[in-house]
Write a protein that binds this DNA or RNA. Structure first.
Lengths: 247, 247
DNA sequence: GGCACTTTTATGTTCGGACATAAAACTCCT
DNA sequence: AGGAGTTTTATGTCCGAACATAAAAGTGCC
C-alpha cells in the first residue's frame, strides 16, 4: 500500500490529459462516472479532481462539468513579486490623494476600457499619485472601481493614503485577490486629465488596467491608471522555472 | 445563507490567528474540539483547515496537531506563461519581416534605452511585425540586439519569420535564457519610424524593452519594440501562489 | 420564432461513521 | 537512567448518503 487511492486517480487523470486522451477544452467524465470507473467513492474522486484543479489543469462549473484547461502543470517563467519594490511596481503603492468618489454605471465605453459587462455598477475612487516630493509633477491618475457594497471604504481610503485598496478590502471584508489580470497599452492623454497631471492633452501616456479576482473568479475591483510618458515604467523579471518548482 | 459553513470556520480561524488569539508557534484546537465548538462535522472543519494550510498559515502533523506558522498569508503571485497565447504576448511571435541588419555600437542614448553599457557592440536586426492580414497596418517595429558573434543568424532569421530569435539562438548555439527582464513605458513615436508604422510622428506609442539573460546572468539579447497606440496590449495574469506551490 | 417557466443534471456542501497511520507519551524491564 | 516495547491520540484516508445550487436543456405559451 504505497500510494493512496485518490493519488492514483489523480495520477491516472493527469496522464490521460497529458497523453491527449482528454484533450484541452474537452470535458472529463462526471464524478459519478469516475466513481464507477475507479471503484472509488465520490469523496475520493473529488479529492483527486481538486488536486488537478489546484494545478490549474482543469476548471469546474456546476452542471457544465469539469473542463480540461491545460496539458501540463503551469511551468515556464515565474515572476517574483516578493520585494517591496515589486509590490510598488505592481500595486502602485505611491502616496495617493483622493480627488473624488462617485457611484457610476458602466456605459459601452467604460465597459470596454475595464473589460466588464455594460451596465455594471461600480463605486469609483479617483486619486492622484504623487512621488513624495511636493514640487514634482504627479506620477499618474488612478480610477479604482470597487463593488458598491464597499462604498464605505471611501473614508478609509482617504485616511490611509499609502495602503493598497486591495489590502483594505482584504482587511475589512476578508475578500482576497486570488488572481490579478493586468493590461498595459499606450493612449493619448485625455483632455480632462491633462491639467491635473501637468501634461499636454494628446500627449503619449501609459495606461494600466488591473482586474482583481477572488477565489471564485469574480472580479471585485478594477483599477485604471494613466501615467504620462516618462513618469512610470512597468518592470518585470521572469525567471525560468524548473520541474521541481525551483528557479 | 450567504457564506458556506466551512468558509465561516476558516475565516474565524484566520481571524484568530491574525489577532493573536492563536499565536505563531502555538497549536490550534484539535479537529474534534473545533467540531464541537462550531457545531460542524469533521469533514467541514477539515475543509476549513485545508484552506489555511493551502495559504501557508498552518502546518499539520499526525498526532502533533495543527501548528500556526504565519500570521498573514504568504503573498506572492505567479505568472502563468503556459499557453501559446501567453508566449505570443511575451515573445511577440507575430510574423516578422526583416527590414535591415547592421552592426552598431551603443552610444549614450541607445545605452540608456537598452540598459546596457555605453560602447557595447551589438548586431542589430530590425523588423516589422505584421498580424497576417496583408492590408492592415503593422503591429510594431522591433530592433533585436544580439551578440555580434551571432551575426550569421541574420539569414536564418529572414528564413524563419515566425520563430522567436531567442529560440533560434537556443537551437543554434545552445544558449538558453534563464531570465527575462521586461520594461514597458509610453513614448512619442520617433519620426523615423512613423512612415513604416503608418502612424503620425509624436503619436502615442508603447515601447517594450526586453533583456534576455543566460544562466550566468549575462545579457546576450535585447529587444526593443515600438507599438503605436491601440495596436498592441501587454497582458498578464498573476495567480496567488502558496507555500506548497499550489494556487 | 422568442420569451418565460420548469426540469434535469453535475458540481458544491454537509453530515455521520469507520479504519489506518504516524508520532508523541507512557510503561516496563534491565 | 536508558532503551525497548506498548498505548494513546490527532491527523489521514475512505465510504455512504442527503440536500443545495447553478446552469444547461427542455417545455409550453403567446
Amino acid at each position: 500500500m504505497s500510494e493512496t487511492l485518490w493519488a492514483q486517480v489523480a495520477r491516472d487523470l493527469t496522464a490521460g490529459i497529458t497523453t491527449g486522451r482528454f484533450p484541452i477544452g474537452s470535458l472529463l467524465p462526471t464524478e459519478l462516472e469516475l466513481c464507477e470507473h475507479y471503484g472509488a467513492s465520490r469523496h475520493t474522486v473529488r479529492t483527486a479532481i481538486r488536486q488537478l484543479q489546484d494545478q490549474g489543469l482543469v476548471s469546474r462549473k456546476k452542471k457544465a462539468g469539469t473542463r480540461v484547461e491545460a496539458a501540463a502543470p503551469t511551468s515556464g517563467y515565474r515572476q517574483s513579486l516578493a520585494s517591496l519594490e515589486d509590490l510598488i511596481q505592481f500595486g502602485v503603492a505611491h502616496i495617493r490623494t483622493v480627488q473624488e468618489t462617485a457611484e457610476v454605471t458602466a456605459d459601452a465605453s467604460l465597459a470596454a476600457e475595464l473589460g466588464c459587462e455594460e451596465g455594471t455598477r461600480w463605486f469609483r475612487i479617483s486619486s492622484l499619485r504623487l512621488d513624495g516630493r511636493p514640487g514634482g509633477a504627479p506620477i499618474g491618475w488612478t480610477d479604482v472601481y470597487i463593488d458598491p457594497t464597499y462604498a464605505d471604504l471611501g473614508d478609509v481610503v482617504r485616511a490611509s493614503p499609502d495602503v493598497l485598496i486591495t489590502t483594505l478590502i482584504e482587511q475589512r471584508y476578508g475578500r482576497r485577490s486570488a488572481e490579478i489580470r493586468q493590461d498595459v497599452d499606450a493612449i493619448a492623454l485625455p483632455a480632462v486629465r491633462a491639467a491635473a497631471l501637468q501634461a499636454k492633452p494628446e500627449a503619449p501616456a501609459l495606461r494600466i488596467v488591473r482586474q482583481y479576482l477572488d477565489e471564485k473568479g469574480k472580479v471585485f475591483e478594477i483599477s485604471s491608471t494613466i501615467h504620462p510618458a516618462g513618469r512610470f515604467t512597468v518592470s518585470q523579471r521572469l525567471r525560468r522555472m524548473y520541474e521541481n518548482g525551483h528557479a
